[in-house]
């Protein structure tokens, strides 16, 4: 069983939002909505500052509250790679999943269903990288299978310090940030 994950090197990310634009065009994300976004996290006092820049999106959590709270089964874990997806035809737009996501990664698509990052499963199943990963001009995003001992993501996780978002939430995110 594959366990797909995204590893993002915050040391290289410049916060250019190319990943956000690419997601827009690749997935026709409607105007005003975004599946991924940039966070600039600044600590300290001028001029001794530290800034972490993160490209954030659905973490495709291993314990996804958005799936457990869904009354219709529309939110589900895809059989391949543990990707968390929404089946538009089953979704009633009750917004429980939106409220249940500690990362506010979801939104209600103008067509009425809950929407979010899909890890570009439609590309991944064709052997392509997710659009955001493929476009990143700093090549700071890596995508792959954590269960594959030879994957780059696995190697980076071994070699580099990393963290996830709100680990205390117990959601077990599968988007990792190298520091």
């Amino acid at each position: 069983m594959a366990r797909l994950a995204m590893v993002i090197d915050t040391a290289k990310c410049v916060g250019c939002m190319d990943c956000v634009v690419a997601c827009k065009t690749e997935n026709n994300v409607p105007e005003g909505f975004n599946r991924d976004w940039i966070v600039q996290d600044v600590q300290g006092k001028f001029p001794t500052l530290h800034m972490e820049i993160r490209s954030e999106r659905c973490n495709h959590c291993e314990n996804p509250p958005c799936v457990t709270c869904c009354p219709t089964g529309a939110s589900h874990v895809h059989e391949y790679g543990g990707v968390v997806l929404v089946d538009h035809d089953r979704c009633i737009g009750c917004k429980a999943c939106v409220a249940s996501c500690p990362y506010d990664a979801r939104f209600i698509h103008p067509d009425g269903y809950a929407d979010k990052c899909t890890f570009c499963i439609h590309r991944v199943e064709k052997g392509l990288e997710p659009a955001c990963v493929a476009v990143c001009p700093t090549r700071c995003m890596y995508f792959g299978d954590l269960d594959d001992p030879h994957s780059t993501v696995r190697r980076l996780m071994k070699e580099r310090k990393h963290h996830t978002l709100l680990p205390e939430g117990g959601t077990k995110p599968h988007v990792y940030y190298l520091t």
Binding site: C16, D18, V20, V21, A22, E26, A134, V135, C136, P137
Partner: peptide
């Protein structure tokens, strides 16, 4: 639909910047 970088191009090396991607 979309615009991507040309992998043969030594300038973009297959990756446009956000403005290029948003050129659509």
């Amino acid at each position: 639909w979309k615009v991507e970088g040309n992998p043969d191009d030594p300038l973009s090396r297959g990756r446009l910047c956000p403005r290029g991607t948003g050129g659509v």
